[in-house]
């Protein structure tokens, strides 16, 4: 039997604000020639750094609002993933996420969200302090 689905765990107290996660994500989502747009961002409320990325909500607002069912839960990773071929670029998901975790890429007219890198999240892999872990 398979082990329970691993989760991306954010322990912001361990975050040192180095932004390695942003770079790792940009590399994972880009090409060898060009960095992609990161799906994770370091925020500093009250000067305390905290990595912010999709929480893969169980009752996800983005899934609810999408008019064409382009967002769905990946059966293995449990991530809420976008089927780009189904997306009609209406930005409803961008508007719906209560945490602002979906951003809009104007140049490719697509919403950007964390898909847990198909079960190998680059951010967690490269986080030097264990603020981001995938287990």
């Amino acid at each position: 039997m398979r082990s329970p689905t691993p989760m991306l765990i954010i322990d912001w107290r361990k975050c040192i604000g180095c932004r390695t996660c942003e770079l790792a994500c940009a590399m994972a989502k880009g090409s060898p020639e060009k960095l992609g747009r990161p799906r994770i961002a370091i925020h500093r409320p009250d000067d305390a750094p905290i990595p912010m990325t999709c929480l893969q909500c169980l009752e996800a607002a983005c899934v609810k609002i999408c008019p064409v069912g382009a967002l769905s839960r990946h059966p293995e990773t449990g991530a809420v993933v976008l089927d780009e071929n189904r997306c009609i670029h209406c930005q409803s998901c961008v508007a719906a996420c209560p945490f602002g975790h979906i951003s809009w890429a104007e140049e490719s007219r697509t919403p950007l969200k964390c898909d847990l890198c198909d079960g190998q999240p680059a951010c967690a892999k490269f986080c030097p302090t264990g603020a981001l872990t995938y287990k």
């Binding site: 912001w12 409320p45 009250d46 905290i50 607002a61 609002i65 508007a95 945490f99 602002g100």
Partner: peptide
């Protein structure tokens, strides 16, 4: 009617910033 109307008051960037502040405070 799928989500509460107060979902649609802030832009994505502000929502993420506010959420970060909330998380830190809660923690």
């Amino acid at each position: 009617g799928k989500l509460k109307p107060d979902y649609f008051t802030h832009c994505a960037a502000c929502r993420q910033r506010d959420a970060a502040a909330r998380f830190v405070r809660v923690g």
